[in-house]
Amino acid sequence: MREISYARAGMEAVTEEMNRDPKTIHLATDAPPAMVEEFGAARVRATPIAENAFSGIAIGAAGSGYRPIVNWSMVTFSFVAMDQIVNQASKIHYMFGGQQTFPIVFRSSVGGGTNLAAQHSQSPYSMFMNLAGLKMILPSTPYDMKGLLKSAIRDNNPVLSFESTRLMGVKGEVPEDDYTIPLGVADVKRTGSDITVVALAWLVHEALAAAEVMEKEGVSVEVVDPRTLYPMDNDTIRASVQKTGRLVIADEAGPTAGASAEIAALVTEDATTFAAMKAPLCRVCALQVPIPYSPGLEDHVFPNRHRIIAGIREVMSAG
């Protein structure tokens, strides 16, 4: 099968869906020339650097029969549009009693590892998970990116697509044919029997590398990738922990009230899963600081395969 990059997979998902549905439109602060050529300047809009307005414009267009794809570029810029995301998009279907649907995708990159310092190295998805009314995807492979993003574009709700900065150039197998991956379905990226690592985005790859190392030490690691943060696939995560009895959660965001905290809660509040646990779980997350610039500082703050290995060893030794 052909291999394409994570970034390319995202682009293919957008262009294929724009071909599939003439009601899709694209809003971003720059209009990719190839897309303008293919779909025209009416559907591929270069906006002013005014995230609040173009995010709201997407809501209005969605409520009027269009299917906007907004690219904030970096998640940093979503904060400029926070009123439109939090007060409007997440609530607009509910507070008007479901009178109208608002199919919108908001794309943005998350995570660090590229020395972009505090503002441009954020992973704030849990802020949005805490709202009701937004779906969100966080793909870890080109295959997942394309399949999930297509589902997001076809979904009749606002969907946030969080895309890992570190993975943009990573290649993987992606079929030529049309396919989708349903939202809310986790993927077991590696099966194992001794311990579960639930990892997000880039850390899925780090967890797989850690699993290779641990296998040589006789520890069988299962790696679960939720892929969708809302709705979260509780069943797959719980089933894995019920099987292995041990859990490490790896996330590029800080731990406090993060997706990792949500995963920890959904595992431990389930009686069957809790009863199957042989040791306390361990979270391997970024340190709870803004992300620093200098390479040594940044490396110190982010989790990686070595810290996942340390976490696995800690849990294995605890029971």
Binding site: I25, G56, I57, G60, G63, N87
Partner: peptide, 20 residues
């Protein structure tokens, strides 16, 4: 809308839809 100014961009989007 409970947010002062919150609807202005939304109606602008409705205008975009009308134009299209």
């Amino acid at each position: 809308n409970g947010i002062v100014g919150g609807g202005l961009s939304i109606i602008t989007g409705a205008g975009l839809a009308a134009q299209m």
